[in-house]
Design a protein around this nucleic acid. Sequence first.
DNA 1: ACGGTGACCACTT
DNA 2: TAAGTGGCCACCG
Length: 112
Amino acid sequence: MEENNFFEKVYSVVRKIPEGKLTSYGAIAKYIGAPKSARMVGYAMNSSHNLGIPAHRVLNRNGVLTGKFHFPGLNMMKNLLEAEGHKIQEDQVMNFKKVFWDPSLELPPFAT
DNA sequence: ACGGTGACCACTT
DNA sequence: TAAGTGGCCACCG
């Protein structure tokens, strides 16, 4: 019963992001077996508005709040991240490396 | 039915 | 070191 839905896989991982941790689109894409489809991950997030997806914990490889313009409020994403103890400057998360959460490392291998 | 677009990333020059 | 290009594939007009 593989969740062949690309989106479902993405949501599944994003929901498992620990509080206070962040990850990137590429990391998720790679974890679900589509390293080149990082773009699709971002697109999936676009549809996750109504779902319980902490999309604010997913940033690009640079730790930049690329998707802040897609949030209800311009400061929403930044606000949510700051609420979790992150420091943001110039739309960029500081110490991104330290709070980076790689699913392929922290989570068990992607099993079908 | 089709072309363009997009919350991106990695490789190549 | 920096800049450029390809790839991925779903949605919109």
